[in-house]
Nucleic acid binder design. Structure first.
Lengths: 339, 339
DNA sequence: TTGTACGCGTTATCAG
DNA sequence: CTGATAACGCGTACAA
């Protein structure tokens, strides 16, 4: 299928290809009349500029990419919406891409930067633990949101915006302890997780220690590696399993809101009352938790602020070409009826 | 920044560029030993194949794209997961792209097909009402899921998989009527909507007519065009507004589950009991609705089946190069505690 | 202000 | 099996 090219347009208008190119790219050195004529012809034809050829030549593009790890994490929705606004305001365009499961964050970046001549990258989620040294291969400024980042090498223009997962988690569990709970179960991520899931688990452990409570391995449910992480389904199944093994707990904390929602269903199905029999708390601050009955206690991440801050950081780095200190924003413990 | 190219690799290995290319692309006509040597050198270097150049030259790529309209629609999550599986099974790769607000479905397709040498496209959501004639510009087979498609022109290899929104909606409202409700409010999409939102509204009207009930304009809440469509927030606000204007209804039907969840919150806040004072029903079959208290009556779309069927249709069209009949799958009315 | 010609990094072709 | 070379479609010096 011989696609139509700028050469065809040029011929059709009786001008040179470069003139067409200039018209297409809003260059100034072209007579308005010529420009209009060309654009008109383009509009009439089915001509579509070939982006591959474009990007091959271009060096620049005022485009930034949002690389999402778990596209079905509803927590990201709000952030994406805010980011869209902020990026538009800077007159940049952007697009969202999903990183597949096996794909490494750094490789994905390198590939896409070349391909699209990006000016910057925003990561949503992802695990950077295993790519510390490789981080400096990312050839444009980047910001990681809601991800755990190792120390960023000096020579690389990257930053992060996140909350202190460990601290906030500890805070929540601490609150549960003060409410008098002695046996607190946790629905954690899988054992090998080195990401925020692990941080939240650590916070749980620290809180127990600080309250002189023992850490019982049988109250720690690890996520099955094969299951969709952080999901309602996995929360449901983990709670079912836990209930089968023991009923000796008065509170449960899940490292994500989706999981606690699933877990609540399992609890209610088993005839447990929330919070009378078992108190339940989640993490993230999804809007859903407030709509629930009983409404669910959770750690609310400042999603909009994280998004805004991330975009701001990114553009600052793009302008100054200098690395920027990472930001850790405070989350808010929202105490509701479930505890 | 002079990026490293296959020419560099070729020089380094003492071979021609085409040999490197062959090694990289798994061609058969290359000595295994040579191949190994080259791949090794590549792995050691920081070489990253330039996709733009690749796609410029390539004609083919065993790749399909999923174009999603509302990336934050949780209804799509399940579908994406299933599609991923099915596409992998065919040994194709895929990627997800988000269509921006102003972007037209056909334009998005045309652009991306050229750029990525796609073999096919799956649309998730979107409105095709305004692009009937232009549909045949899409140069590869495509399938639209959960979207309303006008008649597909003869010369274009496209299909759809969806439910009958009008019928299912009518079915649900019909059920509400049979439960004895005479005043049924609806939270609809915006007035100009020509998509599935409109279809669901039509179903509502038909059901009322069939049950000899009047259609009261003041019981129809249209979505504010500026608000995020189908969202919890808009459902919440619409219900608040409705309650301020009238309390003269005993049931409410929202055209999406998210909206009804928001609406329920508004109802509960106002002291209404569900379903005693007001019955509530949604549409889509999001997992959340089952986890809710009270669990919410809804029309469950067969998400997994739609996804599977869509991928199957697409591959069939890719193979046969022939258009395929669209599929309309049955949804299931799930009656729960909220009605 | 406009046109010509070259090169971006690959892959396909074809001759060895 | 391998290497030289011609496209792919566009942007941009440079010349006109």
């Amino acid at each position: 299928m011989g696609n139509i090219t700028i050469r065809d347009i040029a011929k059709q208008c009786g001008v040179g290809v470069s003139t067409v190119s200039r018209a297409l790219n809003d260059h100034s050195d072209i007579r308005p009349e010529t420009r209009r004529r060309i654009l008109e012809a383009v509009a009439k034809s089915d001509f579509v500029p070939n982006n591959s050829a474009r990007n091959l030549k271009r060096t620049d593009s005022k485009t930034i990419a949002i690389l999402v790890r778990e596209i079905d994490n509803p927590f990201f929705s709000v952030m994406i919406r805010v980011m869209e606004q902020e990026i538009r305001r800077e007159k940049y365009s952007f697009f969202i891409q999903h990183m597949e499961n096996g794909q490494d964050e750094v490789d994905a970046a390198v590939e896409i930067v070349e391909e699209k001549r990006l000016r910057g990258i925003i990561y949503l989620g992802g695990d950077f633990q295993s790519c510390e040294e490789r981080l400096s291969r990312i050839p444009v400024p980047f910001v990681a949101c809601t991800a755990r980042l190792p120390d960023i090498p000096e020579d690389c223009i990257g930053s992060y915006v996140t909350i202190n997962d460990k601290k906030e988690s500890r805070h929540l569990v601490d609150y549960l302890c003060h409410e008098g709970h002695k046996k607190i179960a946790i629905l954690a991520s899988d054992k090998k997780d080195t990401n925020i899931g692990q941080a939240r688990l650590e916070g749980y452990k620290e809180a127990l220690k600080a309250n002189h409570l023992p850490i019982c391995e049988n109250l720690i449910c690890y996520q099955d590696e094969k299951e969709a992480a952080y999901s309602m389904e996995s929360g449901y199944r983990m709670m079912k399993k836990l209930l089968k093994e023991t009923e000796d707990f008065t509170a449960v904390f899940a490292i994500s809101d989706l999981m606690i929602i699933g877990a609540c269903k399992a609890l209610l199905e088993t005839g447990k009352r929330i919070p009378q029999d078992v108190a339940a708390a989640g993490f993230d601050g999804l809007a859903y938790t407030g709509f629930f009955e009983p409404s669910i206690t959770t750690v609310v991440q400042p999603a909009e602020e994280i998004a805004r801050e991330a975009v701001a950081s990114l553009f600052e780095m793009i302008r100054t070409k200098k690395r920027r200190e990472g930001k850790i924003l405070p989350a808010k413990l929202e105490i509701r009826k479930s505890t």
